[in-house]
Design a binder for these strands. Structure first.
Lengths: 332, 332
DNA sequence: CTGTTAGCGCGTTCAC
DNA sequence: GTGAACGCGCTAACAG
């Protein structure tokens, strides 16, 4: 292994000078700099960052906690994070937490043990009290999911307003019997339900509690939800699913029951998942500004690492309704 | 920050003894051990791994290069890797390479700079010569994609045989006019085409080169492929797509042309992507043993790190044909 | 502009 | 069973 000492010796300078060249310190004469650079190249010297990191007591790495990398929702978010990170000399690493507190604990040690400078949570399994404690001592940023009392910087959208917009779209298409399939175990789901209620209330539609299918998630949740809804006497004409995967499960089950989407029943999803456009029919959905969410989260993170962020802002970015083939004006 | 020195002082022992306790070294009396453990807890001491890593000249971290985390194909693979890694005291981190050589270079420095002990490539953008050079100096393992001459350990499936099995399934259903949509830019795609040719040849079906749509990939590739095939005079009755995403694009385009799947045209995919089961119709496909691929890759990696792997094996695990709704015996 | 010195936190070696 | 001393590779502070 080639060390900074080897380079120094070979170039006839001190290690400090080599270090200065490595770090683009201006106070090195052009001649010395060139000489050192040549030796670095000749010896194929690779700085050992373990030494540098120990000395500087930082790693310039940020770790992103992902529930599961297979959730395509997060890829654009991570891209946004990478853009800002690279611009600031940081690198982004990711890990799967599988929504398990134990797995989170393993990777939490990365920050406690100084292996990374900060952690961005996308959907924390641990409770907000523990998170808030953590955020006091370490740079922590939350992305998308949070709880009301969490004391940490947050970047997200206004889920209530987004839910409102989704349901309002169905209302404007003439629908009155609108069902909701989703999970309220996470705050975003809860807020989307609030938006659903607000939209219905606003136009004087009474809320039918049996139209609200809670605590189901993902593809299977959509199937379960539709089964329950189709067992009702008065079936809904439209469905607001709080995620695209739920919507897809729902549509598949509707088709199984010979119901056409959107002719017999309109379906709207949430997230603008990649598959939303690929599915048949393509999904009307709410798009989150994922790239910008990622950028903003990393901006906050780097500010926080550098000590330039002392408050805990909750930043809400703008969502967007994307109209595709799964919703249509109601047939009379 | 609490250091090992602080713990030592508080416990009335030397730093060396604290270190021994931390590393479960047996030569510490039970009494001292308990005392030290108590102080560690009281002071909430977190060992600074930057120091340890520098001293040991290892990080016990393995980095996985992912083309893009949004590719759900890799999530099970990574899970397999994590299982083996954790069992051996290693941790798994991931990064997006976006199939860009420049991005790969950034993260390649992680291993050169000692920040990780090894790198697993899933679909390298860099060429096999550079990879082979790298593998001489650093622990490198390839997962799925490789080239004939790459000198590094590889874990994959037998893509030719898998392609053969897929096409043979169509043949046994009575199909004779079988088209192929896929990309030959990667070796796996090329080998699947070889299997396609072998299966047809074996039963004496002459290969119609206009049935082979190359250099298209992903969802859009499926759409493009079907457009080309439907422009032919003699249309195929079955389609072998070398990925599920291609298959989904193909099916969507077929439906657009009022062709029913599987009644009018059978479609088979590849990968057993999560969406394969969710799509309508659900996809017949080839499943790769993803969890086992990940496990095996990490096993090789850890062996390699520890110097117990000097050859470059190519390990091929067993695939499986999954029959669902997108294929049916041909209608006469 | 450059070299010397010191030390980041830890684990290991060698005494005892 | 334990402590003292050393050094991993690097950079910051200081002196010149």
């Amino acid at each position: 292994m080639v060390t900074i000492q080897d380079v120094a010796k070979e170039a006839g300078v001190s290690a400090a000078t080599v270090s200065r060249v490595l770090n683009n310190n201006h106070s090195v004469s052009i001649k010395t700099r060139e000489k050192v650079k040549k030796v670095i190249k000749d010896l194929n010297y690779q700085p050992n960052l373990l030494g540098r990191n120990l000395r500087r007591m930082e790693t310039r790495m940020v770790l992103v906690f992902l529930y599961n990398i297979s959730n395509p929702f997060y890829s654009k978010i991570v891209e946004g994070m990478e853009t800002i990170a690279h611009k600031n000399g940081y690198n982004v690493l990711m890990c799967n937490t599988n929504a398990k507190i134990e797995t989170e604990q393993i990777y939490l040690n990365f920050i406690k043990n100084k292996l990374v400078d900060g952690i961005i949570f996308t959907s924390p399994a641990m409770r907000h009290k523990a998170l808030s404690e953590l955020a006091k001592d370490y740079p922590i940023v939350l992305c998308n999911e949070y709880e009301r009392n969490t004391q940490a910087p947050v970047v997200t959208i206004d889920n209530e307003e987004a839910g409102y917009d989704a349901v309002n779209h169905l209302i404007r298409l003439g629908h009155k019997k609108i069902a909701l399939i989703g999970s309220c175990q996470v705050r975003s789901g809860y807020e989307r339900e609030l938006g659903y209620r607000k939209a219905l209330k606003e136009v004087g539609i009474e809320i039918n509690e049996s139209y609200i299918i809670r605590d189901v998630g993902s593809y299977k949740g959509g199937i379960i939800g539709v089964k329950k809804l189709l067992a009702l006497k008065e079936k809904p004409t439209a469905l607001f699913c709080i995620s695209d995967l739920i919507a897809i499960g729902a549509i598949k089950q509707l088709k199984k029951n010979k119901l056409r989407v959107p002719e017999d029943i309109a379906v709207i999803g949430f997230d603008n998942n990649r598959i939303a456009n690929m599915y048949d029919p393509s999904l009307t959905t709410i798009a989150q500004p994922r790239y910008d969410i990622g950028k903003k989260a990393m901006e906050l993170m780097i500010k926080r690492i550098k000590g330039n962020l002392t408050s805990n802002p909750i930043i809400k970015l703008q969502h967007e309704l994307i109209i595709r083939d799964s919703t249509l004006p109601i047939m009379q």
